[in-house]
């Protein structure tokens, strides 16, 4: 998929673990894993908003578009 998720880097930058983030934004670790591995077909605005709020970043920091 041309959209890639950079969640790993931002998590590392914020010194946070996936389980911690999942708990803070209120989604399961399984769903967060789907997002991290790029298997997700859609991201809710509410989820994106929560991630940005917790990790103190912008949506552009998480999502990246690259032409194939």
């Amino acid at each position: 998929m041309p959209i890639t998720i950079n969640l790993d880097k931002i998590l590392e930058k914020n010194d946070m673990k996936s389980t911690e983030l999942a708990g803070k934004i209120g989604i399961t670790t399984a769903n967060l894993s789907i997002l991290k591995t790029g298997k997700a077909k859609a991201v809710r605005f509410s989820t994106l908003e929560a991630i940005c709020e917790v990790l103190n970043c912008q949506p552009r920091d998480i999502l990246k578009y690259s032409r194939n």
Binding site: I27, L32, L35, K39, A40, K41, A42, V43, R44, T47
Partner: peptide
């Protein structure tokens, strides 16, 4: 259903 399950 698959799409719904893969929506985070």
């Amino acid at each position: 259903k698959e799409e719904n399950e893969l929506t985070v």
